[in-house]
């Protein structure tokens, strides 16, 4: 799976979870500032990403994932090619 595929899949999960349009899910978008997520929505999103990509996102990492790009980068860095 390449970075582009991951971005697409992450975007689809985000769009579904946060009920936003997939094309609005661009790397620079902040979950809380731009996409209307609260702290519980972020937890739910993290759990969905963990299930989809079979990774574990530790809580201290979650605190550093602020944007769509941060989430995609974490998944890319932690999934085996």
């Amino acid at each position: 799976m390449n970075a582009k595929d991951i971005h697409q899949q992450v975007s689809e999960i985000i769009a579904d979870q946060l009920d936003v349009q997939c094309e609005d899910v661009t790397p620079d978008k902040s979950f809380t500032e731009d996409l209307g997520a609260d702290s519980l929505a972020i937890v739910e999103l993290v759990l969905a990403l963990e299930e989809k990509f079979d990774v574990k996102i530790p809580d201290d990492e979650v605190d550093r994932i602020k944007t769509v790009g941060d989430a995609v980068k974490f998944i890319v860095d932690h999934t085996k090619a």
Partner: peptide
């Protein structure tokens, strides 16, 4: 517990 319980469960 991590994936079985929604963060929205209590509310």
């Amino acid at each position: 517990p991590r994936h079985g319980i929604s963060p929205y469960f209590v509310p």
